[in-house]
Amino acid sequence: MTAVSSWPEALARLKAEVPDAITGESARPGVLAVLAVPAPSIRRLATWLRDEGTFSHCSLVLGIDWIDHMEVVYHLWSDALKGYLELSVTLPAEDPHVDSLGGVWGGAIWHERETWDLLGIRFDGHPDPRRLLMPEGYKFHPLRKSFELREPEELEVKSRHV
């Protein structure tokens, strides 16, 4: 198997070799493409993209709280295609969880830890599922929309201690 040399070629091979891995594809300036991925097939797709699709670098994992649902967005960089690929996974608002990609790219481990810490999205099979930025025992996921910022005068100092 030769490595892919352009994004349309990669997409065609992706559709042939990993069937049903993506549910939608759209374009946006700045990225090669935006792929909508169902949550169960993310690890299968990621492994293919790393091994065959030349996406050797996982740049960014982030979560977005859309109140009625959650979204996890991955950005992958390919040195051959010189561009970013965006994967988007939609998750339910109740107990959102998705397979961890820490085994595919080691660089995703801390991004996933941070996403769990700040947004409360669980990553199944994560090698190190601890909080990262907030201290252990902190009760909230502060980047959720239900968590509102307040002036410090309104807060009891005691309640902010953990």
Binding site: L133, L149, P152
Partner: peptide, 17 residues
Amino acid sequence: GGGPFRTAYSVVPGVDK
């Protein structure tokens, strides 16, 4: 007094606390 991060959830609003 916390500076620009005064309202943040993780910042002590003034170290004299």
